[in-house]
């Protein structure tokens, strides 16, 4: 089974957009490998011809009529925004530079 190195842990933390301290990365390296060890048991099972299960109740896709229904008022949505300007949520520049 796979083993995670310290740089793997840093890479996964970056993918997950988690800013972790050096101490957290150290601890996670040990803990994640311990948990991954538990996954090894699954290799015992031959699942080549077993279909995957993503959901259990086998519902058909349920579609509703394509009509406009009321949604939340703008004020209610923006009330939780950490920074706003008028009817917009303010975020730092995404594309960098001016």
């Amino acid at each position: 089974m796979a083993t995670l190195s310290r740089s793997d842990v840093e890479h996964v933390a970056h993918l997950a957009r988690l800013g972790l301290t050096a101490a957290e990365l150290d601890r996670l390296e040990g803990q994640l490998n311990h948990i991954l060890d538990q996954y090894a048991i699954l290799a015992r099972l031959d699942t080549e011809h077993i279909p995957p299960t993503a959901q259990t109740i086998e519902l058909e896709s349920i579609l509703r009529e394509d009509v406009v229904t009321p949604s939340l008022p703008v004020e209610a949505v923006l009330a939780n925004a950490p920074a706003r300007e008028g009817d917009f949520i303010v975020v730092p520049p995404v594309l960098g530079g001016e």
Partner: peptide
């Protein structure tokens, strides 16, 4: 700073240890 810095700090400081562990496991 930029949006990435916001993400890292907000999520790094906002989530507790078990949630971080599971996000890491799931992301991996």
């Amino acid at each position: 700073g930029d949006v990435l810095a916001n993400y890292l700090a907000t999520r790094g400081q906002g989530f507790g240890p078990e949630v971080k562990r599971r996000i890491m496991l799931g992301t991996y």
